[in-house]
């Protein structure tokens, strides 16, 4: 029996059906895992920083490493001016990282494998960055779409291209995360199905593949969280320092 590899992405309602106007806002397995992700992040940091000491124990070391990793990333890509946005980027990074990692546990649900979730995150970043840019530079922020040293004849075309390039940011940001997670989990499931259907005789090869793919998926889970956070920093940098 080979299960449908797309079955794992199905969103199911848990508990009673709640409706608000014409919207279905019932609690689903996706929401359950979002709550789990947030709870595990919070409890991890509470436990890790319970007894702070100058010489950290292992948990505190991990917490400090995550903090420093993100702090360094922001400093290198967006500079000192981006310091006030550190809490947002740290939470974003942790949320994506934890939901990717918790999704790697068998029988769990990967919330980042749905484009609604990743697109919601990306669109918030997109509007946030745009608002920051306009607040910081006023109407001059529109200069982002007019690169310097372009012949006047080409300017209309270039402006259109720049605007499309700007608008494509939330799409590429969300599609990248969602596609990576969905493709990886589907592949794992397909190879898992091969193990079952080929049985004791031929099942060993796909089993080996499954093990290797799991390793690769854990790498991808971390990498995608990292890429998501660093691209947010890069967009923030564009909004804070107006130069192209």
């Amino acid at each position: 029996m080979a299960a449908n590899p797309m079955q794992q992405f199905k969103v199911k309602t848990i508990g009673p059906k709640i409706e608000l106007g014409s919207f279905d806002i019932s609690f689903t397995n996706s929401s359950l895992f979002m709550v789990l992700v947030v709870l595990s992040i919070v409890s991890f940091f509470i436990i890790a920083t319970q007894n702070k000491s100058l010489i950290p124990n292992k948990l505190q070391l991990v917490a400090e490493m995550i903090y420093e990793f993100v702090a360094k990333m922001i400093n290198e890509t967006a500079g000192q001016d981006a310091r006030p946005y550190f809490p947002f980027i740290l939470s974003l990074f942790l949320f994506v990282l934890f939901s990717n990692m918790i999704g790697m546990i068998p029988y769990s649900f990967t919330i980042t494998s749905h484009i609604v979730v990743t697109f919601a995150l990306a669109i918030v970043i997109f509007f946030g960055v745009t608002v920051i840019g306009f607040l910081k530079h006023g109407i001059k922020y529109l200069e982002l779409f007019v690169p310097k040293g372009v012949p006047k004849l080409l300017l209309p075309l270039i402006i259109v291209i720049e605007i499309i390039s700007y608008l494509s940011r939330p799409i590429s940001l969300s599609v990248r995360l969602f596609a990576n997670m969905m493709a990886g989990h589907t592949m794992l499931k397909v190879f898992g199905g091969f193990v079952v259907s080929l049985g004791l005789v031929g099942g060993w090869l796909p089993l080996g593949f499954s093990v290797a793919l799991t390793g690769l998926e854990i790498l991808v889970a971390f990498l995608q969280a990292y890429v998501f956070a660093i691209l947010t920093c890069i967009y923030l940098n564009d909004a804070l320092h107006l130069h192209h």
Partner: peptide, 18 residues
């Protein structure tokens, strides 16, 4: 590896949006 993954979506997203 992360860089390689960035390129593809960058291209497709622009075509899609336009």
């Amino acid at each position: 590896f992360g860089i390689a993954m960035r390129m593809g979506t960058e291209f497709v997203a622009a075509v899609f949006v336009a």
